[in-house]
Amino acid sequence: MSDSATTDHATTTGMSHNKLAMWVFLGSECLLFGALISTYLVYRGRFADGPAPGDIFDIPFTSVSSFVLLMSSLTMVLALSALQRGDIRNNRLWLLTTALLGSLFIGGQVYEFTTFFREGLGYTTSPFSSAFFTLTGFHGVHVSIGILMLMSMFISSLRGTLRKEHSETVEIIGLYWHFVDIIWIFIFTVIYLVPSPTS
């Protein structure tokens, strides 16, 4: 039933359907995040009476959580390479680590949002606040879906049903995970590190 065993000879291009579909989907996601990032860029200076981005961003904190997400890409690829070797134990370990790092990132985001809210930046405060929460919120939802998929894999591994022949499944979830990571690489630089307007 594993399709990686059968698709190589069955498809025209030799690529598996699933992986090709994931890459097409990721190409599509570029346009989605591009639109959200552009929206933010148009609005980052329009903070009405509320806090400005330059006043409120906590660069050291966000740097740490960005680093956490970056390292989760490493653990993700290690999970894959373990499974490709048939090393179920390490695969399980790295899957769980990746999910935990992802959760840590989400936890940081929740903390950041709460802090901003206390400092007077609500979702409806200004075009800047709406755009900021929408962009980072969309990214957070993507990470959360990734965590769900990783945990599903982890549980399936505990039940003994995630074996070497399923490594393409982990690889495809990994592609999604890395993509979410590189989107954050972009967001971290363009939204946080590039100096923002202050009030």
Partner: peptide, 25 residues
């Protein structure tokens, strides 16, 4: 990340094409 962790360096170039098309567009 794209080249190493996502294996674009080693994989079929069509994947890169799709991804880069989306990105460039």
């Amino acid at each position: 990340v794209a080249a190493w962790f996502m294996h674009l360096r080693f994989d079929n170039s069509l994947f890169t094409k799709f991804f880069v098309s989306g990105l460039v567009l």
